Amino acid sequence: MINKTNMRYLILTIFSLATLFSYSQSNGGFGNSNNWSLNKSEIFFSVGATQFLGDLGGLNREGTQNSIADLDWSSTRYGAGFGYRFRFHPRFATSTQLYAGMLSGNDANTDEIIRRSRNLSFRSIVVELSQRLEYIIYAKEEGGARYNSYGTKGRGTKADIFYVFSGVSGFFFNPQTKINGSWTDLRPLRTEGQGLPNGAEEYKRTSLSIPFGVGFKFAIGKYWRLGIEVSYNKTFTDYIDDVSTVYYDPETLQDKVGGNAVYAANPSIENHTWFTEGQQRGNPEDNDAYMFSNITIIRNITYPKPKGMSRTRWNGRTKF
């Protein structure tokens, strides 16, 4: 379901891409060199850190999913992925990536009294398939020893590229919490009365997100590149952490689901009167978000042009 917050992100994405395209056109095109075509096709592997921005955990303040100021560094987890990038224009590329990582949040990590007393915690794997459009802000690309047959012997390969990106992602998640020392799936426990009388609506374990990010990469050999990439992913769900609306009737939970559901719904450790039926448990107006910060290893798989190609075409430089 697209609420007002997600609609603003969609509008911002479209506006940003339109502005970048207009700016590039107004600055006289992309130069005369075709060296960018030496790097059309790439495969890449990513590994790095993940961060969750949602109702649980965070710093010593009221939570917000819209600001990295609420990052809880102790909840940092890890992820990895791989993908394919195709550059179809000097300034534009598209990439497809499959990524898997773990997200985590824990109220025990904050000194903000309401969140700490609430005492909720979770972890969730996220498996994401994304399709992105990249806009290249700066590029300096020169053929090196790889292109000896074209007269470039002795020159090191350069492929310095700085870019921003956005797109759309589909992902799977499965929130869990520890009960009696074992990780237990939360969705079947219906902690906010999902699907029960007067409870919240049931949620799916798949959703969409909009990634916004920035990246930089450079050559470390004839075919290899090394890069760093950071993305902020605003989702269309508020249930990655299984927390969104209000506390449900514990007697009904006990009767319909069982004791584990009662505990998972309300494990508060103090100020218990704040966490009774009908009281706020999460913020349904502010969907969850997560971040990926990755080191990327990139392999250029673009085939060199056959011998006999004009040297002037291959020995030039592209610099934005």
Rank of each mutant, 00 (worst) to 15 (best):
L71K: 05
F45P: 05
S293R: 06
A139E: 11
L103C: 01
S207C: 06
D255N: 13
M291N: 07
L53T: 00
K40I: 02
F92D: 00
F21K: 12
I161A: 00
T184S: 08
Y247W: 07
F236K: 01
G199R: 00
D242Q: 10
P197I: 01
K153T: 15
T273I: 06
F15N: 05
F165D: 01
I137D: 02
Y9L: 07
I14E: 00
A93S: 15
L10R: 03
F275H: 06
F173S: 01
S16T: 15
Q280Y: 07
Q254F: 10
I220S: 02
I14H: 00
R87H: 09
Y78M: 11
Y99L: 02
S75V: 01
K305D: 10
Y147F: 11
R190M: 07
W274N: 15
S22M: 12
K222E: 15
K204Q: 13
Q131D: 02
R77F: 05
N148S: 12
G63A: 15
Y99G: 01
P250K: 12
Q51F: 12
L196G: 09
S169K: 07
T177E: 01
N32F: 09
N294G: 02
N66E: 14
G83N: 10
D241R: 02
L253H: 06
S41N: 14
G28Y: 12
N271D: 15
S209V: 08
V246N: 08
W274M: 13
R225W: 02
F45K: 04
S37E: 15
S117M: 04
N27D: 00
T312K: 14
A80T: 06
T5E: 12
W36K: 01
N283K: 07
K204T: 13
S149H: 08
G278F: 10
I228G: 13
L133K: 09
T177C: 09
T237K: 05
L56V: 12
V168W: 08
L12A: 15
W183E: 10
T296I: 14
F88S: 09
S293Q: 10
W224I: 09
E229N: 15
V243Y: 02
D185C: 01
S166H: 12
Q65S: 15
D242H: 11
S268E: 04
I240T: 04
N106C: 05
D70A: 08
G101N: 06
G54A: 04
Y135N: 03
I240D: 04
L103M: 06
F165H: 14
Y99W: 14
L189P: 03
N315D: 14
L17G: 04
W183A: 11
A108R: 11
F82K: 00
V243R: 03
L12D: 05
E277Y: 07
N148V: 12
F165Q: 05
M1P: 05
Y9E: 02
Y232S: 08
